[in-house]
Measured scan of single mutants.
Amino acid sequence: MDEEYDVIVLGTGLTECILSGIMSVNGKKVLHMDRNPYYGGESSSITPLEELYKRFQLLEGPPESMGRGRDWNVDLIPKFLMANGQLVKMLLYTEVTRYLDFKVVEGSFVYKGGKIYKVPSTETEALASNLMGMFEKRRFRKFLVFVANFDENDPKTFEGVDPQTTSMRDVYRKFDLGQDVIDFTGHALALYRTDDYLDQPCLETVNRIKLYSESLARYGKSPYLYPLYGLGELPQGFARLSAIYGGTYMLNKPVDDIIMENGKVVGVKSEGEVARCKQLICDPSYIPDRVRKAGQVIRIICILSHPIKNTNDANSCQIIIPQNQVNRKSDIYVCMISYAHNVAAQGKYIAIASTTVETTDPEKEVEPALELLEPIDQKFVAISDLYEPIDDGCESQVFCSCSYDATTHFETTCNDIKDIYKRMAGTAFDFENMKRKQNDVFGEAEQ
């Protein structure tokens, strides 16, 4: 370990593993360490099931009705991949897709007046949907046509809207959309967690709705994908990429100290040895004095023996409960997957309800979601602090990732990755940087 590296990475969460992969592909010498004996950090999948019970201090362990412990891979952080989103792009560019198998999530649902409705995925579904009345549908269709044709580089498509100054509230007004449709559009399509976006320039919202539609167009059922064997497969896929390009991995490796000289990182000390480096990437748990708390998320993992009611017996789905429907500031989400994804025993389902904490009784906040899941065989409640770095790391060369937020997709995580890359490399992130180099010394032969 007593060696000189360009970059040392602490923690094998998804953000850290993707950055480690990119740095290795770009010719950097990388050492990647984790104090845990497993990959994934906060974003790991726990197996066998006995391990999950232990982690949540349920000492009696799983009953026999849960089947074989080894058949379970339970995500600690519930997220899906947008089919046309940035993480899929990263997987394709790096060819990490060859280590993973994905399934399309069967449906996306939205909560309205105590019931759940399928988010329409085709024009026919939209016309048949009970989510809105006849005239509302016509106006909504006009709005969707506007979004589909919108091109930020072609003012002819703006229809009198200025993407940089017109607020989204004004765009909704222009198409005369009612409150329910606005809730549905902002939260189930643009996937905002709160209503803060309404008074911001509309460009980002329009682009988010386009991303949803384009992702949906790829597979038809929903815009989301999920990897077989759980999300823990993602960091491992990128760790393989890093290793192929010469990255060194050490799990179960305690970090005793991060060594600084004149305010700059110069190395990491572990078990009496020092590895030197020019730059350091880590998750917040490794540098508690360089991060601040930015809120909390509650996630309740529920094991069920039945599909969720009114989802047409889907073996995977997402449910969004827009905040307006339950008098909150932030949406509540449910991600459900099952034995069909090799993450649970035969006939079992895993539904994870999550939201940003707003009160001193977080469990009560998630109740509307839990009511949709009854009866629940077993619950595991996790309340996590969200951390963000206190500075950009440019001076110390210590670059810290943000905690995983309450969103049900990876777009915010990818933004964090691109942002850290830019601060480390001094140049904007470009997907081309992730391409495997042809015929290089570490390149794998085609399968």
Results as ranks from 00 to 15, higher is better:
residue 283 D to T: 12
residue 262 N to I: 01
residue 55 R to S: 06
residue 265 V to D: 12
residue 312 N to Q: 07
residue 215 S to I: 00
residue 323 Q to K: 04
residue 212 Y to C: 09
residue 213 S to G: 07
residue 11 G to E: 01
residue 258 I to V: 11
residue 394 C to A: 04
residue 327 N to H: 11
residue 377 D to G: 08
residue 281 I to G: 14
residue 13 G to N: 14
residue 270 S to E: 05
residue 255 V to K: 15
residue 352 I to A: 02
residue 351 A to T: 07
residue 118 K to Q: 09
residue 295 G to A: 11
residue 31 L to S: 05
residue 239 A to E: 01
residue 392 D to E: 12
residue 309 K to W: 09
residue 392 D to F: 12
residue 404 Y to F: 11
residue 439 N to M: 15
residue 368 P to H: 07
residue 326 V to W: 10
residue 300 I to A: 01
residue 119 V to K: 02
residue 409 H to S: 00
residue 119 V to G: 04
residue 252 N to E: 14
residue 210 K to S: 12
residue 47 T to A: 07
residue 65 S to R: 04
residue 64 E to V: 11
residue 258 I to A: 15
residue 379 K to D: 08
residue 139 R to C: 08
residue 2 D to E: 05
residue 34 D to G: 04
residue 382 A to N: 13
residue 317 C to H: 04
residue 220 G to N: 15
residue 364 K to H: 14
residue 148 A to S: 12
residue 328 R to E: 13
residue 301 I to V: 11
residue 142 K to G: 08
residue 70 R to H: 05
residue 226 Y to H: 07
residue 362 P to L: 04
residue 184 F to L: 09
residue 55 R to L: 09
residue 202 C to F: 04
residue 252 N to D: 11
residue 315 N to L: 06
residue 255 V to M: 04
residue 232 G to E: 00
residue 253 K to T: 12
residue 71 D to A: 04
residue 343 V to G: 01
residue 290 R to H: 09
residue 355 T to S: 13
residue 114 G to D: 09
residue 312 N to I: 04
residue 104 V to L: 06
residue 313 D to V: 10
residue 30 V to L: 05
residue 247 G to E: 02
residue 156 K to E: 10
residue 422 K to M: 13
residue 160 G to S: 07
residue 171 V to H: 06
residue 288 P to L: 08
residue 300 I to P: 01
residue 414 C to F: 12
residue 155 P to K: 14
residue 6 D to A: 05
residue 401 S to W: 01
residue 217 A to P: 04
residue 59 L to D: 02
residue 242 S to C: 13
residue 207 N to E: 15
residue 160 G to D: 04
residue 425 A to T: 12
residue 348 K to S: 13
residue 125 E to K: 09
residue 37 P to T: 04
residue 163 P to Q: 14
residue 300 I to G: 05
residue 410 F to L: 10
residue 374 E to L: 01
residue 382 A to E: 10
residue 197 Y to S: 03
residue 426 G to C: 07
residue 11 G to C: 04
residue 445 A to F: 11
residue 169 R to G: 10
residue 122 T to P: 05
residue 42 E to A: 00
residue 117 Y to G: 13
residue 99 Y to L: 03
residue 209 I to D: 13
residue 427 T to E: 15
residue 33 M to K: 09
residue 316 S to Q: 03
residue 112 K to I: 01
residue 282 C to Y: 03
residue 211 L to A: 05
residue 139 R to S: 00
residue 424 M to T: 11
residue 133 G to D: 05
residue 356 T to P: 10
residue 22 I to G: 14
residue 105 V to S: 06
residue 302 C to G: 11
residue 368 P to S: 09
residue 229 Y to F: 10
residue 182 I to T: 09
